[in-house]
Every structure is written in structure tokens, then in C-alpha cells.
Simulated assay, not measured.
Amino acid sequence: MRVHAAYQKDGRIVAIAEIVEDGDERLAVRLLPDDEHEVVEVEVPREFDDKPFAELVERFRVRSGPEGPTLTPR
């Protein structure tokens, strides 16, 4: 599952919105960045696909790397 994640500079996630694909269309609530938060599109580890977003916020943070942003355990 791919999601948009809004996060603070330290990687702490503050909001997640699921990206849903229907054929060629992508349906999503798009989170918008502001002065304190960045927004990225990331892949959720498969074993967490059925977990509530609140649990993802508690368990993961966003980390930037050479291959782009990823979710990593806190």
C-alpha cells in the first residue's frame, strides 16, 4: 500500500492518507505541506497493510535516503 505521509523535520509522522488506484486513476486525499511539515509518498511494509493508520503513525517515522524517503521503525 502506498500512502502520503506528512511529517516533521525529525521524521515524526503527523498524518497519513491512503492512495487508492482504480485502473488508470489515483484516488487520494492529498496532504499539503506547510512551513513545519513535509509530505512524501511512501510504501507501507506489506505486513502493516491492514493496520490502522494511527498504529503506523506510532510505529514508524519517515527517513530520507539515497533511494528516496522510506518508512522506518521508530
Rank of each mutant, 00 (worst) to 15 (best):
E36M: 07
A15V: 00
A5K: 05
D22G: 05
V40E: 14
D35L: 09
Y7S: 02
R74M: 07
E41P: 03
P52E: 11
R74I: 11
E43I: 09
G11N: 05
E47T: 12
F48R: 13
E21Y: 09
E36Y: 07
E47I: 08
E47M: 13
E43V: 11
P73R: 13
V40G: 02
P73G: 07
K9C: 04
L71G: 03
V57P: 05
P66D: 10
V39R: 00
E36H: 08
L31W: 02
A28G: 03
D24C: 09
F60Q: 04
D50S: 12
Q8W: 06
F48H: 15
E36P: 01
G65N: 06
R26T: 07
S64T: 00
E25P: 01
V57L: 13
E55H: 10
E41F: 01
T72Q: 12
L31K: 04
V14D: 07
K51E: 15
A54Q: 08
E36S: 09
D49V: 05
A17K: 06
R12H: 13
Q8C: 02
V57Q: 12
S64K: 04
E55C: 01
G23M: 08
R63W: 03
V57T: 13
G23N: 06
D24H: 15
E43H: 09
V29H: 14
E43T: 11
E18T: 09
I16G: 02
V14Y: 00
E41W: 04
P69T: 10
K51C: 11
V14P: 00
L27P: 01
V57E: 14
E58M: 11
D34K: 05
S64L: 08
G68C: 03
D24I: 12
V29N: 15
A54V: 10
V42P: 03
R26N: 09
A6F: 02
F60N: 02
R30F: 11
A15H: 09
R30V: 11
E21K: 13
I13P: 02
F60L: 06
R74T: 09
R2M: 07
E18A: 14
E25M: 10
V62F: 08
L27A: 10
Y7L: 06
H4C: 00
R2L: 10
V57N: 07
P52L: 05
P52K: 11
K9A: 14
E41M: 10
A28M: 14
E21R: 15
P69Y: 08
G68P: 02
D22T: 11
A17N: 12
D22V: 14
D10E: 07
V42F: 04
P33Q: 03
V3M: 03
H37M: 01
E67N: 13
P33G: 00
V20G: 02
E21A: 15
F53I: 01
M1T: 08
E67H: 10
M1S: 12
S64W: 07
R30W: 14
A54K: 11
V29E: 15
Y7F: 15
V3P: 00
F60H: 04
M1E: 09
R63T: 09
D10P: 04
V57F: 02
V40Y: 01
V14T: 13
P73Q: 08
D34T: 05
V29W: 08
D22K: 12
R74H: 14
E67L: 13
D24F: 15
D24E: 15
V29Y: 13
Q8K: 14
G11Y: 09
R12P: 05
P52S: 04
E21G: 07
E58V: 01
E38V: 00
G23K: 05
